[in-house]
Amino acid sequence: MSDSILPGRRTFLKSVGVSSLAVAAAPAWVQAAQAVRVDDSEQPLKPGEQRINLKVNGQTHTVNVPANAVLLDVLRDRLQLTGTKKGCDHGQCGACTLHVNGVAVNSCLSLAVSHDGDEITTIEGLEKDGTLHPVQEAFWEHDAYQCGYCTSGQIMSAVAIINDPAIGTDDASVREAMSGNICRCGAYKNILSAVQSAREKMKGAS
């Protein structure tokens, strides 16, 4: 692993900015982590490793991964894309939901080696040029979270559900479709409001 892609050991001091909550500016080193591009093509493969290309949020990475590495861990540990969360590692909670080629999947249940060449969108990829996705905006507006840990997965599922014509638009259908994403804080009422309000805004925009 190239050390240069990771925040240095002084991160502890630098990362003060992470908890700095001025609405105006995102903390500096988080942005740096986003911009990281991993290129392992010059690194020799270790026994059991395979080299894969992942196109994540528009950025192509070449990563040497062991066969037993799951997509979630590669995104978090290698690409520093920690917005996607680990809540159970068993596909039971939905916190790790992201989009592979436009389809919502539990990234903890998916081996990284099976995603060579895939286009992956994580929560970090929804915001475009500093403008939040309507679903992100609606989650903020409707207080559709408490601790925020399941939020990335909820938002990625919500985007997929709104875009899926097979899923009904009524409240009961949305509740059913979102039931793979547990929110232990219980912000379900506000999440439903956020999803339905974002749906209206997205309709208006298209």
Binding site: V18, D77, T82, E127, F139, W140, D143, I155
Partner: peptide, 27 residues
């Protein structure tokens, strides 16, 4: 008012205990 930390939470930038990757970190 909506939460002052809301943008960090909806963009995946809010960092929890295991979101801090450190140089030479072991697991």
């Amino acid at each position: 008012p909506k939460r002052v930390d809301g943008r960090l939470k909806v963009t995946g930038k809010a960092q929890y205990a295991a979101d801090h990757g450190l140089d030479r970190m072991a697991f």
